[in-house]
Amino acid sequence: MKEICVSQIEELTARLCVSANINLEPSITAALAEAEETAPLARSVLGQLAENARVAAELRIPMCQDTGMAVVFLEIGQDARVTGGGLYDAVNAGVARGYEEGFLRKSVVADPLRRVNTGDNTPAVIHAEIVPGEVFRVTVAPKGFGSENMSALRMLVPADGRAGVRDFVLETVRRAGANPCPPIIVGVGVGGTFEQCALLAKKALLLDINGRHADPFWAEFEGELLDEINRLGFGPAGFGGRTTALGLRVLTFPTHIAGLPAAVNISCHATRHATGEL
């Protein structure tokens, strides 16, 4: 059985918090460069976002001041063992250290109504999954709330079908408008239960924007939804244009005979995630 010390987990988590916030995904950099816009304002916004990614990497400062709430995905091999302390304590210590050492913003309040800042961006939102083997994988996905606030979940019914899911996705993006800093990335979850559907949408944001669902039925639906979103006309920064979304991915799961849960997690172009293994 492989042993992993909590100090290694803290160290890795801290490093991933910093790198995720500073470095834009190459696929998103490419998508910004390839976006076809003719209107001067739309071109100006895309140019500023591309330049922003260069400046952030050069100055080693976060690409967005909202360095997010730290969402941490753990994949823990069933033959791996954590030693030397508590796993979640180590992750939170890593988040606190990364946000301090990386000059990242502390954006977490301890109580949703009484709203006092915790001062170190903890606690993280931690999703742990047991997987085969000895692997120990950490993915840090900081999530800004300009876009998180625009996300939605709806318990559709089977009769709503494909059209119902489509309408809900488009309605959510339309309602978000200029607020989530378009061009956006859209994560869609369909199926499962109430809570799992939201997690599917979140995990869809971790996927390569150039990839497609393994099932051709859903792959085609991903393409159709992205095209329809880009016909809404919001464009970069919401100033009008064809590039409202750079990517859309769907994750699905079997569901109940009575239900059709659908969740839409909206993210800005700074869809951040960094992964490391121990």
Binding site: L59, R60, I61, P62, C64, Q65, F103, L104, R105, N179
Partner: peptide, 22 residues
């Protein structure tokens, strides 16, 4: 409408984009 990230040494401010006005 902005809440910047902390200023690293030698710079007047950290990253400082707009937040949602609504």
């Amino acid at each position: 409408y902005a809440g910047p990230s902390p200023a690293p040494p030698g710079r007047p401010t950290g990253s400082i984009g707009p937040t949602t006005s609504g």
